[in-house]
Structure formats: structure tokens, C-alpha cells
Nucleic acid binder design. Structure first.
Length: 279
DNA sequence: ATGGGTACCTGTCTGC
DNA sequence: TGCAGACAGGTACCCA
């Protein structure tokens, strides 16, 4: 489900609620992608210091007690449930069949809902060590940071024979660009998705940087987007649905030139593009 | 090092 | 209506 914008919207939705809250207990549902990696008891009594994002991961800082690295996978969403967020102040609702993790705190419960269970919550002594360290170490540059430049992108694409679409998705050059925004950014930058990554030159790198930034920032500003059922941390649907130019629009006329949008499969993932605008 | 394929799991939609 | 099959926003890992 979530690409960088949805993860950032999720972070923004929970950070003020959870920061400073004291952990009371941890509830685990069905197994997620990896085990928690610590005794849940050891987290009790710790205070959440803050929540930061790296790519599509969220790091919940527990100070001396390390922290929790969370990934939403394909179908995950987070909610912060306080007693009075429920009608009548009746308390926190019982977890449903797809609620697989609760961080119960003094202020309410941080709950992960994840039907497909590709998501994960893993503990580490810091985000540089243990399992979190392993997961974060090979990530590429943050697309919304100053460090994401055309030169940097070009350098990352050097020697890569895979398609530019697959290289963007791989996450070791630039993070956070998922299947939808990859198609959208390539369309906006007028780059054909099957172009070999190493053949994308300086000008197209420049346009890609600009449009990857723009499409991600726009989606965050809009409160996240979703094609299906993305919920932010308040349980609201993103008030804005991303108006995709190409994603999911096979056969529909390109908004620029009216040519029918094509769908192809690259690395087992669907890619949508305009065969005329993107070369 | 790179790249291709597989695996994880469940819900929803499509076509017969 | 029922059912099989395809497909879905992600990414680690195995093997060539």
C-alpha cells in the first residue's frame, strides 16, 4: 500500500500523540514478516522520544531502550487510539483479526493493522545496529533531501542494465518511490520506463529528480493518497485521492496527447506509460 | 556486483 | 451463485 507519502503522512499523524508517551505493554497478534526481536516486557516503562522516517520505514525512538523499526508492507496502516477517540469515551476498541501489533502507552495505543502481514515491527538497540541496522544500511538517498540531485541519481544509475523503472523501485539509489509514483514520475519526466538505467543521461536525470520530488511532495501535502483503502493515523481516508496520470489507466487516452496508455510488466510489477510522450 | 525469480499472506475482482 | 485464477501499494533472499 504505502509509498513514501503515505508513510510520511502516517508519521505526521502519530508523532505528536506518541512522543513523550510511556510504554505500558506490547500486544502481538499473528506473526509479521520478522519477529519483534526482543522480550516485549523490556519495553514497558520506556518513553517514546520521537518518530522519524527513513524511506518507507518509521523509527520509534525509545532512548536508552533502543527503538522500534516499523514497515507497513503492502497493506499496513497505523492508528493512534486514545480512550476518548471512541464514541462515548468507551476506551480502546478490541483488536480485530488483522490488528497484529499494539504499543500500549499512557496516552493510548499505537495499532498496526496489516491484513497481508508483509509489514514488520522489529526492535534494535539503535537504528544503526541489529536488525534495524541491517534493513536500513543499503538504502538510497532521501528524495526530498538536498542530497537528491541529478548528479547523485546519475551516479547511482551507472552500470545498471535494468530498466529505469526497476532501478527506481529497487530503493538502493533513491528510497520511497514505489510502484505508483515510479510510473507517475516517469510520465511527468517523459522518460520511457524500459530505458536501461545507465542510459538515462544528465537532462533526463534532472527531470526525474524534479518530478520525483514534485509528485511525492504533492502527495504528502494532499494528506496522502490512496487507490484503495489507505487510512491515515486518525482513521480518515486521505481527503485527496491521487489523480494519477497513467497508473491504472490502461487504454485511457493520455492527458497530454490522447494516445492510449499502455500497461507492461517489469520485474513482475505493472508499469503504465504513454508510448508517445515517454521516449 | 548484478539481475532474475521466488517467497511471504490475504482480500478483492474478473471471467467462466 | 460458485469457484478458480489473476492481481494488489514491498522487499529480503537465493541462485546463476
Amino acid at each position: 500500500m504505502p509509498e513514501l507519502p503515505e508513510v510520511e503522512v502516517t508519521r505526521l499523524g502519530v508523532v505528536d500523540h506518541i512522543s513523550g508517551a510511556k510504554v505500558q505493554s506490547v500486544r502481538l497478534g499473528k506473526p509479521l514478516r520478522w519477529p519483534l526481536g526482543c522480550d516485549p516486557q523490556q519495553l514497558a516503562g520506556q518513553r517514546v522520544r520521537g518518530v522519524t522516517r527513513r524511506g518507507k520505514y518509521l523509527w520509534f525512538d525509545l532512548g536508552e531502550a533502543g527503538g522500534l523499526l516499523l514497515h507497513l508492507g503492502m497493506s499496513g496502516s497505523l492508528a493512534f487510539l486514545s480512550g476518548d477517540s471512541v464514541a462515548g469515551g468507551a476506551g480502546i476498541p478490541a483488536p480485530g483479526p488483522h490488528d497484529h501489533f499494539d504499543l500500549v502507552t499512557s496516552r493510548g495505543s499505537l495499532r498496526l493493522h496489516d491484513p497481508r502481514r508483509f509489514g514488520a515491527v522489529v526492535w534494535g538497540p539503535s537504528k544503526e545496529e541489529g536488525m534495524p541496522g541491517r534493513l536500513l544500511q543499503s538504502l538510497g538517498v532521501e528524495p526530498l533531501s538536498e542530497a537528491f540531485t541529478a548528479d547523485r541519481l546519475r551516479q547511482g544509475l551507472q552500470g545498471r542494465k535494468v530498466s529505469i523503472k526497476q532501478a527506481l523501485l529497487a530503493g538502493d539509489v533513491v528510497v520511497g518511490v514505489g510502484n505508483i509514483y515510479a510510473s507517475e514520475a516517469l510520465f511527468r519526466a517523459r522518460v520511457h520506463p524500459a530505458t536501461a538505467a545507465h542510459r538515462v543521461g544528465p537532462q533526463r536525470c534532472e527531470r526525474l529528480v524534479q518530478h520525483i520530488r514534485a509528485v511525492l511532495a504533492q502527495a504528502i501535502e494532499a494528506g496522502g493518497s490512496s487507490l484503495k483503502d489507505f487510512r491515515n493515523a486518525q482513521g480518515n481516508q486521505g481527503h485527496f485521492q491521487l489523480m494519477t496520470a497513467v497508473y491504472g489507466r490502461e487504454g485511457q487516452p493520455c492527458m497530454t496527447c490522447q494516445t492510449p496508455i499502455k500497461r507492461v510488466v517489469q520485474g513482475q510489477r505493472a508499469t503504465y506509460f504513454c508510448p508517445r510522450c515517454q521516449r
